[in-house]
Amino acid sequence: MSVSNRRERGGVPSLSLREPFEQPSSIGAWLHSRRAAWAFMSPAVLLITLFFFIPVIVLLVLSLSDLKSANFGTFQWWLPTNWSLDNYSKIIGDRFISKFLGNTLFYVLTTLAIFNFGSALLIALITTHINRRAGFFFRLLWLLPRLTPSVVYILMWRRIAARAPHGILNQFLTLAGLGGGDNLLQTMPWVFVIIVNGLIGASFGLVIFTSAIEAIPRDYLTASKVDGASTLQTIRHVIVPMIRWPILFVLTFQTLSLLTSFEQILLLTGGGPGLFRTEVWALRAYHLALSTESGNTQWGYGAAWAVILVIIGVAAATIYMRVFKFDELVEEPKIDLI
């Protein structure tokens, strides 16, 4: 029995109801169902084709070409005769590759574990178990970072981390007699990069977990309590299994989000201090090839960096799908036709 069947309110397993309808009974019905599917799917298919599939194909082709702003409009990047693997060999020739990979891995795993998944689930569980209004209030606070324009949000964190007397944290350290020191972004950049990104990222999982937990029929929780289960046991054996789908979704989606995100790091530390201390792969791609501080933008070269990142992302997504038995989760359209 699958997760979503169990999630149905009233708890009646629908498996037996579904079976007779699973196979189309006639050609006419089959066509009918295809038509319905197309009617429902076509707007999304159109949007995704236009704004994802085509740009992605362009990206793959660009990664083989030398398109840059200095030849944009004159260079025929779409001609196979203009394709080569030069961009990729340039990337392999970069001696800091392992540093960028290491930074990326560290950043994604730590932020995901502590915030985007860990805190999101923890705060969702706590706020759904306390006074409703109080829970709502704390969720709103956790959501503020995502609601705030990133420039203003980063400005705030820079102020928190700055040197005394302007830095807020250093001000407290000074008052506490611990000595307000240097800019904290210089002395502990990773701590700030992870907190700053994590506070934005956690709200995603928080909202999804909250609504999923709220969607669990009260009877289940009551039954668990009547059976004498402690709160932790209820969480472990009732709640978590019932929100497996949201968990898979948040984990996968946030892993990919973190892999490709760089905006906050760019604004906060710019990849520093020092030589690439907090430079992740996506930021490197941006710095090397997509930022246009002066002169040329190397779109082709940047595309190659992005493609490697995408390969990592797809590999991660595949692993998640295996671990969480994605096949089982999607292999269950409830019915099919009438």
Binding site: F52, P55, V56, L59
Partner: peptide, 17 residues
């Protein structure tokens, strides 16, 4: 899901076309 692995900044040129 996999499309989400493509950083949007890198798709801008393709989207422009």
């Amino acid at each position: 899901l996999i499309l989400h692995a493509f950083p949007s900044v890198t798709l801008l040129i393709g989207t422009f076309f």
